[in-house]
Write a protein that binds this DNA or RNA. Structure first.
Length: 500
RNA sequence: GGGCGGGUAGCUCAGGUGGUAGAGCAUCGGACUUUUAAUCCGGUGGCCGCGGGUUCGAGUCCCGCCCCGCCUACCA
């Protein structure tokens, strides 16, 4: 028995386009060209025409010649003439295709074009009677035949699953998505520029770590065949960057991916991008000022303003940003004091009195962290530096001078989003070893996010690291802020989704 | 992991109390030389997420599973 043929518009549509493809080839044309010389981009052609128009004394312009390439995103046929909308990375322009202008053969060949195809057009850029800037084609050529339908012209593509799984469709159907990613690119470029201006060297350190260090997080595990050993995708570049300071670099930074084998939600993707910078002879207070300077600089570059709206919140980057110690913020927003006690049970009692859920497994540091998350962070709408964190939360930070219960650490918050983490780097190898041993105890007690002892890092500190301040910035979150994106998936080209 | 919502044509979405599966856009055929969500006429197109069950009959009701989103818990 023959299998019943499964009909669908998708298959029919593809077959129609394959037929057109064959017709193009049959008349000796190549539906997949090798190159096309454009005189300019579409956005530039529009701008150039408007400039020429403004200069023309009578308000009329003869038009300017151009060769433009792009994807056909709309087509309106009128019998013996037709209009197409052509789009490239910089914008969209209308194309007028008249039978008398391009000739009978070329006009007939329009039948083999579809929305989604790429074409190149030679002609004059002018305005139509209706005022639309249009390139009046003298000739055109097909550059790439599309075999699949683009999503609908009016509603675009809204199904978020398809948008993320097939981002190319999302971008092709929803040009504003390109703008979001352009902003992300601009943001990172601006940050590189700020760092270069401040004499930081950009470096690259390993992604494959024998010991996952520099943060508290569960790692991805992989295997090296030749060495027959397990390796971990890095959870942070921190320890390697500090080894570079030990070696003799004074100012370094790295912008690249980190990987954490943890939950996925609107603020977390398993792989994410950070900027980490280290500056010798600097401490956390000095770095706080630099952080403010850098974040204002790069965000204002992208935003073109010192204020912006994030998810309905009006945010002002006006300096100076608010600075408040973590313990003071807890007193202010939770109405309890966790600084005057270090007893775990007393701290738990006070946290519960403030309405924070506490489990028996939580130690003092974790309790402070919980209260901060539940009671403090939701109030940090305007840019704020929280600083002076309990030593239990910060195994790589120097003790605060004059108060060994605290560390010299700060975190910038904007619109209730934690965008970074910084401290005076712990450079006392004896202290660092003790802190690692504390982490090892936590790990042995069942905390699988506790940090590992990294002997080579301690050895490096014994060789000697000058006083150093370090900062990490979550670039995806910064991109969310400047693009007003509610989900981290909107600012990552290909966010992680379950395999299907 | 838990709670809520969702999955119907290529896309965007409708489908009261179970009774032959719908629209717009796209697509195909026809008309049209200044349209721009072009217009007009005609047509094609469906494993209704997957698998069970109840029923004479299930897109609809019940159970299980898969995927997505939001909220929630933990890491940035």
């Amino acid at each position: 028995m023959e299998q019943q043929e499964h009909h669908s518009t998708e298959q029919d549509l593809r077959q129609f386009r394959l037929n057109k493809l064959e017709r193009i080839r049959a008349r000796g044309d190549d539906p997949y060209k090798y190159a096309f010389t454009r005189t300019c981009m579409i956005g530039e052609a529009r701008a150039a025409f408007e400039e020429a128009e403004a200069k023309a004394s009578d308000g009329q312009s003869a038009g300017i010649p151009a060769s433009l390439g792009g994807r056909i995103v709309a087509f309106r046929g009128h019998g013996k003439s037709a209009f197409a909308d052509l789009r490239d990375e910089t914008g969209k322009i209308q194309v007028f295709l008249g039978l008398n202008q391009i000739g009978e053969a070329a006009y007939a060949a329009l039948d083999d074009l579809d929305i989604g195809d790429f074409i190149g057009v030679h002609g004059m850029v002018k305005r139509t009677k209706r005022g639309e800037i249009t390139i009046f084609a003298e000739r055109y050529e097909i550059l790439c035949k599309s075999l699949r339908a683009l999503p609908e012209k009016w509603h675009g593509l809204t199904d978020v699953e398809t948008r993320y799984r097939q981002r190319y469709l999302d971008m092709a159907a929803n040009p504003e998505v390109l703008d979001i990613f352009k902003k992300r690119i601009q943001l990172i470029a601006a940050m590189r520029e700020w760092l270069a201006d401040h004499a930081f060297y950009e470096v690259e350190t390993p992604m494959l770590h024998p010991i996952p260090g520099g943060a508290t997080a569960r790692p991805f595990i992989t295997h090296h065949n030749t060495f027959d050993c397990d390796l971990y995708l890095r959870i942070a570049p921190e320890l390697y960057l500090k080894k570079l300071i030990v070696g003799g670099f004074d100012k370094v930074f790295e912008i690249n991916r980190c990987f954490r084998n943890e939950g996925v939600d609107t603020k977390h993707n398993p792989e994410f991008t950070t900027m980490e910078m280290y500056e010798a002879y600097q401490d956390y207070m000095g770095l706080m000022g630099e952080t403010e300077d850098m974040l204002c600089s790069v965000m204002e570059t992208v935003l073109g303003a010192a204020t912006f709206t994030y998810q309905g919140m009006e945010i002002s980057l006006a300096r100076p940003w608010r600075r408040i110690t973590l313990h003071e913020a807890i007193r202010q927003y939770a109405g309890i004091d966790l600084e005057s006690t270090h007893d775990r049970d007393e701290a738990a009692k006070r946290a519960k009195s403030a309405g924070v859920e506490i489990t028996p497994a939580m130690g003092y540091g974790k309790i402070v962290d919980e209260v901060m998350s539940a009671k403090v962070i939701p109030h940090l709408i305007q840019p704020t530096f929280l600083y002076d964190y309990p030593i239990e939360l910060s195994p790589l930070a120097k003790k605060k001078r004059g108060n060994p219960a605290l560390t010299e650490r700060f975190q910038p918050f904007i619109a209730c989003l934690e965008v970074g983490n910084a401290f005076s780097e712990l450079n006392d190898p004896i202290d660092q070893r003790e802190r690692f041993m504390e982490q090892v105890k936590l790990r042995e007690a069942g905390d699988d996010e506790a940090q590992y002892l990294d002997e080579d890092f301690v050895t490096a500190l014994e060789v000697g690291m000058p006083p150093t301040a370090g900062l990490g910035i979550g670039l995806d979150r910064l991109a969310m802020l400047v693009t007003d994106s509610a989900s981290i998936r909107e600012v990552i080209f290909f966010p992680q989704l379950r395999l299907v």
